[in-house]
Nucleic acid binder design. Structure first.
Lengths: 207, 207
DNA sequence: CCAAAACTACCGACTACTCAGTCAGTTGTC
DNA sequence: GACAACTGACTGAGTAGTCGGTAGTTTTGG
């Protein structure tokens, strides 16, 4: 369920709205939604707070638009590489991780920040974004599971591995390394990812 | 640097202070420090907000006391089992994970929540708790690294594994599964942990 | 073809409320 | 009676959101 928006919009309005969401993503990825005021976002986006609230009827509506953007970018970044990588999914993941340090301050940084910071803020089931985060998590699990399962059926992956549990493991690892790198950007993510990918590949491969 | 406290304290005062920290940990583990007001904590702890501020001169001081408590409990829970488990550290970790579901609403839940929620809130380097979180992360890494390295020297673990990178991997996995379980308590953490531990053990063991 | 009406995209001023923190006391205990 | 352990009333700085208005653009009807 994407965020409800005003019915009619001109090209100019759409542009402003995009600009606001851009700014909001950057702010929220660093300081969280609770740590970011509408005034902050409005000032950076070059509109008044009232102007912002014309485009998004409430902070929650803006938050949902921000999450829409995040999920779309996430999707594109992770799965835009082509169809069904099979067991090579661990290499793809590792390659993505290795690219983090060079993308500090970029869209990718915001992507990771959104995961860690917004998830932390919405752990409690009665928070605004919690249902959508759970849904997003489950969708990702399902996708990775499907990839692993078909690789298993093709004989690329050992039979005694449960694809769903393995998917959970891969995602947990990504998420954890992400969080660690965000709080301490000096850690060698590329090296860690490389060792992890190599070991995962040999361990999962059918003998 | 632990939180500075008032110089003199009676038994009663100490008891109240403990009660306040107890309540604060529970609240903050669910809603974060930014999502928890001093009034909330004070009410639940059975003192006025002014009374709370008598014991902790500011919210930040309380937060540091909360983090003290968290780190101490974390320490006890993770390393209280005895000296140097060697390669069995993965089993210990997995056993801990398997116990999560039965401890919902308990101190352990708060422990996990503190990790995920407070970390998310303090990703940005200019937040109050960020330096202490980085320090805590590095300490844990060092400890796990030391355990793995000595196991490697004893010949329990293959030589081509880098203990530090492996430690990062283990911690990242724990952290990620923790976060996933917090947002979605229906996921089978025990099964995931069991498969993970089994595979880690066979993969790490010297042949 | 053009003026009036309607609508989009804003803005400044304001409101109601929440929050951390202060101050000037009061109570209870060694 | 000194000091620790409080409390109620208050303050000032935010905060999300409302209201009434205006400039510019688009639509409509004669």
């Amino acid at each position: 369920m994407p965020a409800a928006q005003q019915p009619k919009t001109s090209a100019k309005g759409l542009e402003t709205r995009e600009r606001i969401v851009d700014v909001a993503v950057r702010f929220i990825a660093r300081n969280g939604a609770r740590g970011t005021s509408l005034a902050d976002i409005a000032a950076e986006a070059g509109v008044s707070q009232t102007g912002l609230l014309y485009h998004f009827r409430s902070k929650e509506a803006l938050l949902n638009a921000v999450l829409d953007r995040h999920l779309a970018f996430s999707e594109e970044w992770l799965w835009g590489d082509g169809p069904d990588p099979g067991i090579k999914i661990v290499d793809i993941v590792a390659r993505h991780m290795a690219s983090w340090p060079s993308q500090h301050d970029d869209k990718v940084y915001s992507l990771l920040g959104m995961n860690t910071v917004v998830l932390g803020e919405n752990v409690s089931p009665d928070t605004d974004l919690h249902p959508r985060l759970v849904e997003g998590y489950r969708t990702t699990i399902d996708r990775v599971t499907a990839t692993l399962r078909s690789a298993q059926q093709r004989g690329e992956i050992r039979d005694d591995i449960d694809p769903r549990l393995k998917a959970m493991e891969i995602i947990a690892y990504c998420y954890g390394l992400e969080a660690a790198w965000l709080v301490d950007p000096t850690i060698p993510v590329a090296d860690a990812a490389a060792q992890w990918a190599a070991q995962q590949t040999t361990q999962m491969a059918s003998s």
